[in-house]
């Protein structure tokens, strides 16, 4: 999974039970994340890679890491489609 980071326009409130995301682009949109996704988002926001975050979620719940990684890949696609997550790209100079 590519490295991902939350969009700068997204403000998140994360609890152990879930999370709320407010995307202030345009007219503003609210999203709700269930518990495992919210925990994954929290790790991502702290700088973990997508897979590291998924592994942390798996450890928290005592779940199969491969299953959690697959689930988080699906979630990442949804979040990227809504422009709430971006692929992290290291800056390069082009001539």
């Amino acid at each position: 999974m590519p490295d991902l980071h939350p969009a700068s326009t997204v403000h998140a409130t994360i609890t152990e039970r879930g999370g709320m995301l407010l995307d202030v682009r345009g007219r503003g949109r609210w999203y709700a994340l269930t518990g495992s996704g919210a925990l994954w988002w929290r790790h991502l926001a702290k700088g973990a890679t997508a897979d590291e975050a998924a592994d942390a979620v798996a450890a928290h719940f005592g779940s199969d890491p491969e299953r959690v990684r697959a689930d988080m890949r699906n979630l990442a696609r949804e979040l990227q489609d809504r422009r709430l997550l971006h692929v992290y790209s290291r800056g390069r100079w082009h001539r």
């Binding site: 007219r27 503003g28 949109r29 609210w30 999203y31 709700a32 994340l33 269930t34 518990g35 495992s36 996704g37 919210a38 994954w40 979620v57 798996a58 719940f61 005592g62 779940s63 959690v68 689930d71 988080m72 699906n74 979630l75 949804e78 979040l79 809504r82």
Partner: peptide, 18 residues
């Protein structure tokens, strides 16, 4: 406030816009 069991994450877009 019992260990939680894992469930796949879900994302909901709320039907509110101030």
């Amino acid at each position: 406030s019992t260990p939680e069991t894992y469930s796949a994450p879900q994302l909901f877009e709320l039907d509110v816009v101030k």
